[in-house]
Design a protein around this nucleic acid. Structure first.
Length: 427
RNA sequence: GGAGAGAUGGCUGAGUGGUCUAAGGCACUUGACUCGAAAUCAAGCGUAGGGGUAACUCUACCGUGGGUUCAAAUCCCACUCUCUCCGCCA
């Protein structure tokens, strides 16, 4: 959520920022916010005078009574005043609700350092690690490799659940688990994150806090009859851990890592990436979440991105880092780096991690503050997160990049301790 | 699922209709005392919003949402969460 005063004071700056995200952005939303804000303050100044009158008069009444005066006319006057206040308050509530609903649908302002652009074609490659894997045989896609080795079963999942779900079997399941453990161990022992295992179902306030609600309700799974949602990412529960809290500056940065399943309805992506592990309704992910001092949040974004990259480096998977342009960054983000792994079946790099600085956008929504010192005013902190990394896509990348001519797959060395020393998956 | 108890400022804890404008304590900040510290004493010390150049001032907030009343932390209704016990259960 943007600071209402920022919108009030620099409407044009905000409008330009929104248009840089999308030329189609409805900038009347900004005007609406400004109007509602003005109306709100108008009502406020009127009703507060009346409330002051009521308060002072109500305090007079017992004194006058004690003096034996007839207070009935005053009480009658107060009854009328009370009704008036009630009307104003009702109007105020209406305006405030509309203001809130509107402002919650306005995305974050991209950071100054974000390249201008309209789509992923305008993203900026910032670095590259490794070279696209070359094969001296005809390389297969991971869905074929996995099916042939009988470690992935898409049909079975289709029967049991439906499209976009997968059964992992045998060493496939073991490989997924090995990746999870490897990533968690790396981030906790080498990068200083604290492991958390959060709830995978959250309430409305949590979903609003990180920005999934109210705008993206159709992308998520909601439990029938309850105000509960399956999490689309561990970002949601982990960022909301300290909602409504005031942390001490000495605690920052807080660095948490969490493994969870993630659930996405993927509304609007029918027909895209229909095969394999790339786009599923349920997938596993190890997430990195940071709570940072605003002055250091961009340094923290760099190190968080490096932490995620270390996963791919250690697994020997070729990747590149891309800085997303204004047209491609997510709703809540001020700046995002995507990590893209080389996926032979796609013949291109595919997103495997998204590392973002949200600045104070989520902190405002979730009321997440910190205090620099005992006498200091509480300030909104900055939140960041990134995948460290998506597990299903990692498995897909391993299967494809480490496949052999005979259909077997070599296990990356770093994972072997987690695989009981197994070096290769064969038929 | 059933029964009971509870939710008040950073923490603790008093408060059952009108100086609650939320006591007291702890913690914290500043000052005094001290070479310094502890102890002691004094003052300060919540959040959000409105108005004002400012000093300041007004409004709201005692789990949440309604209601009663001239007036609600206090009375009424609903809900949420926490704790205890019972039942069921991995």
């Amino acid at each position: 959520m943007l600071d209402i005063r920022r919108i009030r004071n620099n409407p044009q700056e905000i409008k330009d920022a929104m248009l840089s995200r999308s030329a189609d952005f409805d900038i009347t939303l900004i005007d609406k916010v400004i109007e509602l804000d003005e109306r709100r303050r108008e009502i406020l100044s009127e009703v507060e005078v009346l409330k002051n009158k009521r308060n002072t008069t109500s305090q007079e009444i017992p004194k006058l009574k004690k003096e034996g005066k007839n207070v009935e006319p005053i009480m009658e006057e107060m009854r009328v005043l009370g009704d008036k206040i009630k009307d104003f308050d009702a109007e105020l509530t209406k305006v405030e609700e509309e203001l809130e609903a509107t402002i919650l649908r306005i995305p974050n302002v991209p950071s100054k350092n974000v390249p201008k652009g309209q789509s992923d074609a305008d993203n900026l490659e910032v670095r590259k690690w490794g070279e696209p894997t070359k094969f001296d045989f005809e390389a297969k896609a991971h869905w074929d490799i996995g099916t042939n080795l009988d470690i992935l079963d898409f049909e079975m999942a289709g029967k049991v659940t439906g499209a976009r779900f997968t059964f992992y079997k045998g060493l496939g399941a073991r490989l997924e688990r090995a990746c999870i453990n490897f990533m968690l161990d790396l981030h906790t022992s080498k990068h200083g994150y604290t492991e958390v295992l959060p709830p995978q179902i959250v309430n409305r306030r949590s979903m609003t806090g990180t920005g999934q609600l109210p705008k993206f309700a159709e992308d998520m799974f909601k439990l029938e009859g309850l105000e509960y949602w399956l999490i689309p990412t561990a970002e949601v529960p982990v960022t909301n851990m300290y909602r409504d809290d005031i942390l001490d500056a000495s605690q920052l940065p807080i660095k948490n890592t969490a493994f969870t399943a993630c659930f996405r309805a993927e509304a609007g992506s029918a027909g895209r990436d229909t095969r394999g592990l790339i786009r599923q309704h349920q997938f596993n992910k190890v997430e990195l979440v940071k709570f940072a001092d605003p002055e250091k949040s961009y340094e923290e974004l760099e190190s968080l991105t490096n932490d995620a990259e270390m996963v791919l480096k250690t697994l020997g998977l070729p990747y590149r880092v891309v800085k997303l342009c204004t047209g491609d960054i997510g709703f809540s983000s001020a700046m995002t780096y995507d990590l893209e792994v080389w996926m032979p079946s796609y013949g291109r790099y595919v997103e495997i991690s998204s590392c973002s600085n949200f600045e104070d956008f989520q902190a405002r929504r979730a009321n997440l503050k910190f205090r620099r010192g005992p006498k200091e005013k509480a300030e909104y902190l900055h939140t960041l997160n990134g995948s460290g990394v998506a597990v299903g896509r990692t498995v897909a990348a391993i299967l494809e990049n480490y496949q052999q001519a005979d259909g077997s797959v070599i296990i990356p060395e770093a994972l072997r301790p987690y695989m009981g020393g197994i070096e290769r998956i064969t038929k």
